[in-house]
Design a protein around this nucleic acid. Structure first.
Length: 551
RNA sequence: UGCCUGAUAGUAUAAUGGUAGUACGACGGUUUUUGGUACCGUUUGUCUAGGUUCGAAUCCUGGUCGGGCAACCA
């Protein structure tokens, strides 16, 4: 039994269409990325929506690359997009490309010319812009608008044949230069670009514009519900106009509000800038909101799908709290991550009554959230251990349940210890803490009868391994960098990455790539893709919630 | 100042003329060998002014505010 959730407006539309027997009850969606950058969490929302809708209503989803602009597109992006969609857990019915339809779209264009509904315009880009008027003033026709059908056909064929240089001519739809909808003021259908296309190579030197490719591709694929974002609302009239005049399959366009998230930016153009100007390492830098960045950071597909489910689908502009994404990954990792101990900011602790040179092997379960603990691992213990510097206070406040002169804590999976003394250097830094342990308090065999409030993590000094640990924080220091004054890059968070060396328990040396680990009391971590057995590198996915830090 | 859109707690999202609910956040508590998790509780909302109606977040009218539209980008 699945929990009841009210339908979003698109599900309502789909259910109504099914009830009405529209398209024989068939549901076919598509996810249509342009291969000119990497997918981000905003695309994940669209992917979950499009694939989710089809899944829920027994339909299919095509992956269609909107590759109509050869100068910005590349197969590198095609590959990354396919990988990301698969990784998110979705299977497309067909892998398609708008460029597969170039012949068909060209025929559509000729068709419109023959109907007297399209013409070749020799004006420059500037002239066309000027002649379009403004939102409050109608556009003005030029001499090319009244060219004969025959002349238009000949010129368009010559454009295709490569007779003209880039920008010399365009093909325009002849609609209404006075329309209050700017998109209907004789929109461009084709432009000349003598550029090598990542799939069609040099076959074409004219390429259709988005408005004369997207809807046509939808029609060719008989997409029933073409879902896009709000900024395409004014394009819908044009989308419908082409369907009517071309008499092609009547796909219908629906719009929803794109995802925005606090402390990041969500435009491919801006993300591209961060990469190109080296503000981040790459598209998959773990600070990036890209799917590949989140993956490298340690986010799971399930957590991202859950996030997309929780944010909902509506038509109003929105900005989602980053904390919701963090909630989703914590929720997932809490259930699946294996617990391990790592000391990120170490200070040495000596257990003075523990025999020198001796040690023992303790046991810790992998995951307390799972019945039986999902197995466990050995943890070596000895007289000298590292603990977290912040777990000791020389002058401890009332509710500090950790170490300080005279205070007792439990060492996770080990003994209860009592702080007897500490050593400071000339600058006043704590360099060593001296404790005694209570032998009867061993984890699992505690007969001491002592109850302590706090438990801290630790790593045995002689057994400790080291690892580089990358502590990531939000990429920007303001909630909505795109809406701030000036360049968004001025708001980058200089603290977004701290690289440290940490002491880790030996078992972590065999950490599995792609798996999430909880460093107890600190956060969730995963191996970076550049980690090697000789030099371990962990990325912090997200911290644990810290109720104490807030006080 | 044209056209298109939208407006419900801090942030999202429901309620489809009939008790304004849920999640995240925040705050407080219980449990706990993770100050985590789990569980419980508290907090804050229908943009505004009219109208229709027994009854309006919902329908109507005016206003206010937000977003989009004048790329040979998608």
């Amino acid at each position: 039994m699945s929990e009841e959730r009210s339908l979003n407006f698109l599900e309502e539309i789909v259910e109504e269409d099914i009830r009405d027997g529209k398209n024989g009850g068939r549901i076919h969606t598509r996810f249509p990325p342009e291969p000119n950058g990497y997918l981000h969490i905003g695309h994940a929302k669209s992917i979950c929506l499009n694939f989710g809708l089809a899944q829920k209503y027994n339909g299919q989803t095509n992956l269609r690359f909107d590759d109509t602009n050869p100068v910005t597109e590349d197969t590198e992006y095609v590959e990354s997009i396919k990988e990301d969609v698969k990784w998110l857990g979705f299977n497309w019915a067909n892998e398609l490309y708008a460029s597969d339809y170039f012949d068909q779209i060209y025929a559509f264009a000729l068709n419109l010319i023959r109907k007297g509904l399209a013409y070749v315009d020799d004006s420059t880009a500037e002239e066309i812009a000027a002649q379009k008027g403004t939102p409050t003033e109608p556009g003005t026709p030029n001499q090319y608008r009244s060219r004969s059908i025959e002349e238009n056909i000949q010129l368009f064929e010559e454009m295709k044949a490569g007779k003209y240089p880039d920008g010399a001519k365009v093909l325009r739809a002849k609609i209404d230069l006075a329309s209050p909808n700017m998109h209907l003021r004789d929109p461009l259908m084709y432009r000349i670009k003598h550029a090598k296309h990542h799939r069609t190579g040099d076959k074409w030197c004219i390429y259709p514009m988005y408005d004369f490719a997207h809807g046509q591709s939808d029609a060719i694929e008989e997409i029933t519900h073409s879902v896009c974002t709000l900024e395409f609302i004014p394009h819908r009239a044009l989308y419908d106009w082409f369907i009517k005049e071309l008499e092609i399959f009547p796909s219908h366009q629906y719009e929803f509000a794109r995802l925005n998230m606090t402390y990041t930016v969500m435009s491919k153009r801006k993300l591209m800038q961060l990469v190109k100007e080296n503000h981040v390492e790459s598209w998959d830098d773990p600070r990036m909101p890209t799917i590949s960045g989140l993956r490298r950071r340690g986010y799971t597909p399930a957590s991202i799908r859950e996030f997309c489910e929780r944010i909902g689908i509506a038509k109003r502009e929105n900005i989602i709290d980053l904390s919701l994404l963090e909630f989703c990954i914590r929720e997932d990792l809490n259930k699946t991550a294996w617990r391990r101990m790592a000391v990120l900011d170490p200070v040495k602790l000596v257990i003075t009554n523990y025999p020198e040179g001796e040690g023992e092997i303790l046991h810790g379960e992998n995951n307390p959230e799972v019945e039986g603990g999902e197995g466990g691992r050995d943890i070596p213990f000895s007289r000298e251990i590292y603990i977290e510097r912040e777990d000791f206070m020389e002058v401890a406040p009332k509710k500090f349940f950790r170490l300080g002169p005279g205070l007792m804590v439990r060492l996770k999976n080990a003994y209860i210890i009592k702080c007897e003394d500490f050593v400071k250097d000339a600058e006043g830094n704590i360099t060593e803490i001296h404790c005694t342990y209570i032998p009867e308090s061993k984890s699992g065999h505690d007969t001491s009868g002592i109850n302590v409030k706090g438990t801290i993590h630790w790593v045995s000094v002689p057994h400790a391994h080291t690892a580089e640990v990358r502590l990531y924080d939000r990429l920007f220091k303001v909630e909505d960098p795109a809406s701030e004054e000036g360049d968004f890059k001025e708001y980058l968070n200089p603290e977004s990455l701290h690289v440290i060396t940490a002491y880790i328990e030996p078992d972590l040396a065999t950490a599995i790539p792609g798996k999430g680990y909880q460093f107890i009391r600190k956060g969730y971590y995963t191996l970076d893709k550049h980690s090697t057995p000789g030099k371990l590198v962990f990325n912090r996915t997200v911290t644990l919630k810290d109720g104490w830090a807030k006080k």
